[in-house]
Simulated assay, not measured.
Amino acid sequence: MGEILLGQYKGELPIVIIRPTMVTSTFQDPFPGWIEGTRTIDALIVAYDEQALPCFLGDRNDIIDLIPADMVINAALVAMAVHWNGKLQVIYHVSSPCQNPLSVNDFVDSCFDYFSISPRILNGRVLQTRRPYLFKRYAFFRVCLMIIFSLPLMILEGFNLLLCGCFSRYCNDLNRRYNFFTLLVKLYAPYPFSKGRFDDSNLTWLRMETKICNVDGGNLNFDPKQISWHSYLISVHVPAVLKYAHMKKGTTLRRTSYSYSQ
């Protein structure tokens, strides 16, 4: 609706509309991994880190549409430089699937690799990392949810009632994990099976126009083809998300770090 209003009232002004997809931490500028706030896919990374994501909805062959924040900003800056004296309304989808797709399977594998080489430490004990199981059908997912959370919680609450609250702490902890998990499902359930792709042909044209017209975009990188998703996720984005999440909670992030070679 905002874009429609801009088109109606822009007059002679040029309009450039930037539509980013799921924005992640920076790829290069001002430094790799700059982030303010955990959003979109980051909540799943935090849940994975806390081993609160035993299963989820999705198809491993589906594509996740991520784009680093600095590429969004760079695309906007270059677009302004190219269109500042025009009269058209131009729309740019700043996304990655058409140029450099990231599958759900690659995302899960990258997270698993990170947590395997840098596992959490709790009370001096290294916590084991488990892969979440992905369900393609919602009915099967609901059954798994009942077995993992609902039934144990009902049994524990029954024992807690009989034993005068001896298991209250465990009940509260399991209930908290269950509520957090159901919140994630409500937020993300509509998206795992989406087959839509944003057409980034305008952005491809912008990169070519930058080279042809010699617009100073040499240091303003917004080409998703340059991203090695596995390396970016385990070396940049996942540690940045966890660092910010633990800083927000006021906790210290303790990990056992091992050397990694791609």
Rank of each mutant, 00 (worst) to 15 (best):
H246W: 05
I155M: 13
T26I: 01
F193Y: 11
A75N: 14
F198T: 05
L161T: 14
V72R: 00
Y258H: 15
C111D: 04
A47N: 03
V143T: 14
P119M: 03
G218A: 02
T21R: 05
I91R: 12
T256W: 06
V94E: 06
F149Q: 07
P101W: 04
F141Q: 02
N214A: 05
L66T: 05
I63W: 01
F149K: 06
F141T: 03
E3N: 02
V82I: 01
L253D: 13
S95G: 08
D200V: 10
L13Y: 12
V104E: 04
D223R: 03
D70H: 03
L183K: 13
H237L: 04
S150R: 12
L77N: 01
C166E: 08
E50W: 02
K87G: 15
I15H: 09
Q99G: 02
F140L: 10
G7A: 11
L156G: 12
F115H: 10
V46G: 01
Y9S: 10
F56W: 15
R207E: 01
I41Y: 07
I91Y: 06
P132K: 09
R169Q: 11
N74V: 04
R19P: 00
D65H: 06
N61G: 08
F180K: 14
P20L: 08
H83D: 06
Q226R: 11
G2F: 07
L151E: 06
S228K: 10
Q8D: 08
E12Y: 11
I121Y: 00
S201C: 02
K195G: 02
D59H: 04
N74E: 05
K249E: 15
D42A: 08
P119S: 02
T38R: 13
F112H: 10
G2I: 13
F112E: 09
A75R: 10
D59V: 03
I35C: 01
G196Y: 11
